[in-house]
Design a protein around this nucleic acid. Structure first.
Length: 548
RNA sequence: GCCCCGGUAGCUCAGCUGGAUAGAGCAACGGUCUUCUAAACCGUAGGCCACAGAUUCGAAUUCUGUCCGGGGUACCA
């Protein structure tokens, strides 16, 4: 409807003011006013035209409205002109009632697009190195990445979820050494955990498993690769199972090591050297990032001959770009925001089309306990694991919690609150609405209403009913917004609003009554709400329960 | 120093590309279950939208500056 009105206004001003406006595009808006008195839709077009036409906005509005009224537009009941020059449109119930029928007819496909049909998109997220269990911070990214993937899938894209990790390098050597220390600890040997090593208790658990498997075979016998491999395998397994508990499954686990093995690292470095964007200094190879707007040049290969993370990152993205994806989406934490521009610059140097790459940055999660901030460090083992969080509040709450906030905003996660208020958590509010609807439909069958296909939606005229239908008419715009911004939060907000409207309706009106005609009409309404609910909850990855 | 986020009710956050009386949840106080689940609903209270300027018919929203918080600015990932 909003699009119809926009078109209508555009056509109208072209007809009346074509000469004076001269095909300039007027940047006017159509919005849904907060106040019902201002109609269903409101446009500021006359206000915008006033400066161009150098005329009183009220007079311009009057001209426009007169012209529109000649056209006798269906669905539009009334048009009003108000104070400074707003044009307000009042839509008749008929239009909204038809939406219910449409939803029932199209079901899950209602407003579904095929924007992404035959398009492949890769979403890279989490990508934590296997040095410890996933933390709450990783949780935000995991949930966000999966929800973004689901939004894309809903729009018809073929999505590959990918996890990029590295089981080599300094960090992993420290991990291996730390495991060895803990293993020896089980024999009563007190060795020092290396500086910057991993002190978390989970290493002790792994050491125990290691002991169970190998016995004393590696006592006083530190074989680095054995310890690293064992720790990696174990941690990666637990990471996968944590993600699985959130219904998140990656299609591809990409090990950075393969880039060394297949020569992509060398190839990338060579290409960059040939392009003349590198130089040697102090025994290291540098990337002239200052030429691309950075404040300092960056090291690609250390004087030790070992690449920094930057070179593999570049090689990895170059490799992604050769995999014929139509879009590549990277989800990173705020700590990465400084590094990805370098990757993009490097790719441009090598003549890749970087417009396919879209980077989403989310802000950090701050863990709060008793109003005190807790610092999270995987290395020190001072963190609350994602697993523990799922134990406490469950999958649905975890997912909803991370989705309900804008990714640009810092997230405060209060542990005490999460434990205390599981019953008052907003996610139950949504699920409860869905469960109530299911229950009513069940109840209607007990009352011998076996089918309500012949229900007449024209009977839906109560304010609470119309409000719900109006909100459902916004569904299309919400889904569009989610797709363009890739911000699942909008969907969570929408669902909350829809729940609220439903609960209000439920409180005031009974669905199943002695009036069979009305009962059937209302059953149609709630069934359509249920469809929308199930759809949205599915995209957010939250269960839509039949009972609670 | 420079770069990226944020600063809205006691707390956690919405507020779309500027619009007409600033919104929700939690917390506080008061009310509503013989009738489809009270995990709900209704009401009360609570705001100089960090601060100062600028643009505009009109700014929480755009721009500039200042202050405060988080992150980055590694030959760590």
């Amino acid at each position: 409807m909003i699009y119809t009105i926009k078109q209508l206004l555009e056509n109208t001003i072209n007809e009346i003011f074509s000469e004076s406006v001269n095909n300039q595009s007027i940047d006017f808006s159509i919005e849904r006013p907060n106040n019902d008195k201002h109609g269903d839709f409101s446009s500021n077009i006359a206000l915008k035209l006033a400066s161009v036409l150098k005329n009183n906005p009220m007079i311009i509005a009057k001209n426009i409205v007169e012209e529109i009224q000649k056209k006798n537009v269906e669905s539009v009941d009334n048009i009003e002109i108000v104070k400074p020059g707003f044009i307000n449109f009042f839509i008749n119930n008929n239009y909204y009632q038809n939406i219910v029928e449409k939803i029932l007819l199209e079901k899950d496909d209602y407003q579904k697009t095929n924007i992404g049909k035959n398009k492949k998109v890769q979403v890279e997220f989490v990508s934590a190195n296997p040095t410890g269990p996933l933390t709450i911070g990783h949780g935000r990214q995991a949930v966000l990445g999966d929800a973004v993937s689901r939004i894309l899938e809903w729009n018809g894209y073929e999505v590959t979820r990918e996890y990029y990790f590295n089981d080599a390098g300094r960090q992993m050597r420290l991990l291996g050494k730390s495991l060895y220390v803990r293993y020896m600890g089980l024999f009563g040997e007190k060795l020092e955990i290396p500086t910057d090593g991993y002190e978390g208790e989970y290493i002790i658990d792994i050491a125990q498993l290691f002991l169970n498997k190998y016995g004393e075979k590696y006592k006083n016998n530190f074989v680095e690769t054995v310890f690293i491999d064992y720790a990696t395998e174990n941690l990666l397994f637990s990471i996968k199972s944590t993600l699985k508990r959130l219904d998140i499954v990656h299609d591809v686990f990409f090990n950075e090591k393969t880039l060394y093995e297949n020569g992509k690292i060398d190839e990338t470095l060579k290409k960059m050297e040939q392009s003349g964007v590198t130089y040697k200094s102090d025994g290291a190879i540098w990337f002239k990032t200052t030429e691309f707007g950075a404040e300092k040049d960056r090291v690609l290969v250390k004087s030790s001959g070992e690449p920094t993370y930057r070179l593999p990152d570049i090689a990895y993205h170059a490799q992604k770009l050769t995999r014929d994806y139509d879009r590549i989406i990277d989800i990173f934490g705020a700590d990465h925001h400084a590094t990805y521009p370098d990757v993009i610059s490097a790719l441009k140097v090598m003549n890749y089309d970087t417009s396919k790459i879209h980077v989403l940055i989310h802000q950090f999660v701050t863990l709060v306990r008793n109003n005190e901030k807790i610092k999270m460090s995987t290395r020190k083992g001072d963190f609350v694991t994602l697993d523990k969080l799922i134990d406490i509040v469950g999958k649905d709450v975890v997912r909803y919690f991370f989705i309900m906030r804008n990714m640009d905003s810092h997230l405060n996660f209060d542990i005490e609150l999460a434990q205390k208020e599981t019953d008052e958590n907003p996610v139950y509010y949504l699920q409860y609405a869905h469960a109530r609807i299911s229950n009513i439909i069940k109840h209607s069958k007990l009352k011998n209403i076996n089918s309500f296909d012949d229900g007449n939606v024209k009977l839906l005229v109560e304010k609470e009913e119309v409000d719900i239908m109006k909100l459902m008419s916004e569904y299309k715009e919400i889904m569009k917004l989610c797709h363009t911004t890739l911000e699942p939060m909008h969907l969570a907000n929408y669902l909350h609003k829809l729940s609220s409207h439903f609960h209000k309706f439920y409180q005031k009106h009974r669905v199943v009554t002695d009036n069979e005609e009305l009962s059937k009409a209302r059953l149609k309404l709630i069934k359509s709400i249920k469809i929308i609910f199930a759809n949205c909850l599915n995209i957010l990855g939250i269960e839509a329960p039949e009972n609670m």
